[in-house]
Design a protein around this nucleic acid. Sequence first.
DNA 1: AATCCATGGCCTGACCACTA
DNA 2: TAGTGGTCAGGCCATGGATT
Length: 216
Amino acid sequence: MLIRFAYKEFYSDKELEGLRKTTLESYELLFTDFMRWTEENELEHVSDITPRVLKSYLSYCKNERGNNPTSLNTKVKLFNVFFGFLVSEELLEDNPAKHIKKFKEDIRIQSFSDQEIKQMLSWLRRNRRRENDLHAVRNYSIVVTLLGTGLRVGELVSLRWSDIHLESGYMTVFGKTRRQETIPMTEKVAKELSYLKGFYESKFEKLSPYVFVNQQ
DNA sequence: AATCCATGGCCTGACCACTA
DNA sequence: TAGTGGTCAGGCCATGGATT
């Protein structure tokens, strides 16, 4: 079977499964590039793709494109899913990605120091006092909320007023891995959000369902 | 039998540079 | 300023062996 057709089958299967757009896009990105590369190397059938071929593509990504181990590992994972699918559909005997070892990666997590956080907050506070406009007020609330709850950016952005329970001091968020979770709020956060709400109400005729909005 | 723990598989969010 | 392509980084869950 041609790689192109196999990938089409695979992609529509994943679409049917209901995967997130971002996930589907990451398959698209990898396979668009991979199929371009296989064409250049005159490979067109899934049976042409041996572990050797995959390794050669990965070493191209490493050397020509400067991919680091984490990216290479992500690619191996995606290949694994794809070829695993072909095997389960009996379009291929063996999964060539199966036995590629993990690339060694260094993991370093950098976080802000207390000092940096204080600087950030004091700058934002001063800015809010000075400007007192939508952005200044909102931005301060955003940082206070992030610090006080540990929300992900995606969760913060999709936060609605109806998710926020000021009196009981908690919020519900729906974020990564499609899970709804209940997050406790510190008093500081609750106070800040209720201030923000008041600010919106004084500024706009109608309150947007979303907590953090732009001018529009 | 229950619990713990490491590992691999998979999904998805976030970041970054570049372009329009 | 928004959109996009490419890359990087979690985070959940099932599995299976080890330990209690």
